[in-house]
């Protein structure tokens, strides 16, 4: 397939407009285990695509959501996270975000606020999951409360890329959220169009009534708005 070629590939982000395509981005500090999580989820099926010019790694995945095939692109950082900021194109057209910290390192948790602020600057509405990774290293952390997630009403997942706890659930849910976000934002546009049509219909009805008033009952003419 063309996308498997090692040629410097163009980043085509138009495809994310297509119905069956979603883009899910990973955020978080250096060494919190973002790539390890990806690899644990995809197992043998993972074929990362390094896009060094964009400082990112792409993982392609095919999922099935409600009987429909969905092509998922996972975007992972490739070192750029150390600047605690990503390029705008990283966020462009993303449908969901997986935001990771390391339960062994407070600073990675504290930095979530920086990541979250940047995410919301570019994508104010997309679903975002907060991920507490490396719980295998310290299970006690799963018995603690983390206000960050609560404050922004974000789901919090306790996971371990090493032993696999909740990794598949995390990604399956992220895909589901991405797909539903995409459908709902479409629904929103549909609603707007529907609303416009309704206004026209109402106007027609009103005009019709006016005409009926003037004319004799029983005879109807279709109104012809000028």
């Amino acid at each position: 397939m063309a996308r498997d070629k090692a040629k410097p590939c163009e980043l085509d982000q138009e495809k994310y407009d297509a119905d069956d395509n979603v883009k899910i981005i990973c955020l978080g500090d250096s060494a919190v285990g973002k790539s390890k999580l990806m690899e644990r989820f995809l197992m043998d099926g993972f074929q990362p695509q390094q896009l060094s010019t964009y400082a990112l790694t792409l993982y392609k995945h095919t999922a099935t959501v409600d009987g429909k095939t969905v092509l998922v692109d996972f975007w992972d950082t490739a070192g750029q996270e150390r600047f605690q900021s990503m390029h705008a194109s990283y966020y462009h057209k993303a449908h969901a975000c997986i935001m990771v910290f390391d339960v062994q390192r407070k600073i990675t948790y504290r930095n979530l606020s920086t990541w979250y602020a940047e995410l919301r600057e570019f994508r104010p509405e997309i679903p975002c999951i907060v991920v507490a990774n490396k719980i295998d290293a310290d299970m006690k952390m799963t018995q603690k409360s983390f206000n960050f997630a609560r404050k922004f009403s974000l789901p919090l997942y306790f996971v371990s890329a090493a032993d696999g706890t909740n990794v598949v659930k995390l990604f399956s849910d992220a895909i589901r959220l991405a797909v539903s976000y995409k459908q709902n934002s479409r629904d929103f546009m549909d609603e707007v169009l529907q609303e416009l049509e309704n206004i026209d219909l109402k106007r027609e009805e009103e005009e019709e009534e006016e005409m009926l008033d003037k004319e004799q009952p029983g005879r109807q003419q279709s109104p012809s708005p000028s």
């Binding site: 948790y109 018995q143 609560r150 990794v167």
Partner: peptide
């Protein structure tokens, strides 16, 4: 592998 870790109000803060 799915394990539930409920975030109850009673939990001690991190």
């Amino acid at each position: 592998i799915e394990v539930e870790f409920p975030q109850d109000e009673q939990l001690q803060s991190c």
